[in-house]
Design a protein around this nucleic acid. Structure first.
Length: 260
DNA sequence: ATGTCGATACTTTATCGA
């Protein structure tokens, strides 16, 4: 089962690219982030026509997440638990049956958090604490799950072209990395890093300052796997080629292959 | 040295978020 995740930076602006990518790479499941539209205006039919079931948790203008799956959903649950007053659409969870049992997959869009001096950074850290608590609950099931999406976290120095340039950024602050490690330390596996040792493998290049042609990127889109899912991990890769397309998102898809 | 893109609205340009 191939499970991909891609921050598309507006599904309506990116629909032609998304369709081309789905046709070319044919993931079984695609987690999408920053769809930037409400459920009613999500281009559901165009994706159903490609053979996908569609689950959407949208929001006007900002955020919004979705999951596409060739297999039907057994269960779909929006919203990250822990704060009923949180209106931002950043979490969507679905369970899908496979030959090896059920697998739960979440599409997440963690807060960016910049600038660090603002309330946005406090929200980012709080959201990550809520994610950790929710994952702790999921671990009690002792089943396969995959938390895939834009974590807005640069895990290590070798996941960024110039670490010094990002030292003050919310994506690379020590408090951010500490919070991310606290999630990993529950016993999760960074799937890409478990499969690929090469450094400087990026999933995001800023639109500005020629970041893409100069390969000044960062690795911020990740699949974190439960122990049961990690046991079934076969491969992981980054679909870097879509960054060179016309009307590209600033992120590219990253995928894993699970033996289920 | 410079440099982007997408959504929105009292819209055709400014503002916000990333």
């Amino acid at each position: 089962m191939k499970i991909a995740t891609w921050n598309v930076n507006s599904i309506r602006a990116r629909l032609e690219n998304v369709i081309s990518w789905l046709k070319e790479t044919s993931p079984d499941v695609a987690c999408l982030q920053e769809i930037k539209t409400v459920d009613e205006t999500f281009p559901r039919e165009a994706l159903e026509d490609l053979g996908y079931n569609v689950a959407v948790h949208g929001q006007k203008s900002y955020n919004g997440v979705a999951i596409l799956s060739k297999s039907p959903f057994d269960e779909v649950t929006p919203r990250l638990p822990g704060d009923d007053s949180d209106e931002q659409a950043r979490y969507l969870q679905a369970t899908i049956s496979t030959g090896a049992g059920a697998v739960t997959i979440a599409s997440i869009y963690a807060p960016n958090g910049n600038p660090v001096s603002s309330e946005k950074y406090a929200y980012k850290l709080d959201w990550m604490t809520r994610l950790r608590a929710h994952i702790q609950d999921l671990l009690r099931t002792e089943e396969s799950f995959v938390i895939a999406g834009d974590y807005n976290v640069i895990p290590h120095d070798d996941d960024v072209h110039n670490p010094a340039a990002w030292a003050e950024d919310a994506l690379f602050r020590p408090e951010t990395l500490r919070s991310y490690r606290a999630i990993l330390n529950l016993g999760l596996t960074d799937a890409f890093r478990a499969c690929e040792q090469a450094s400087h493998q990026y999933t995001f290049w800023d639109y500005q300052a020629g970041a893409w042609p100069k390969d000044h990127g960062i690795r911020i889109d990740h699949h974190l796997l439960s122990p049961q899912a990690a046991d079934r991990l076969q491969a992981s890769g980054i679909d870097r080629f879509v960054r060179g397309w016309e009307k590209a998102s600033d992120h590219v898809p990253i995928w894993i292959e699970l033996d289920v």
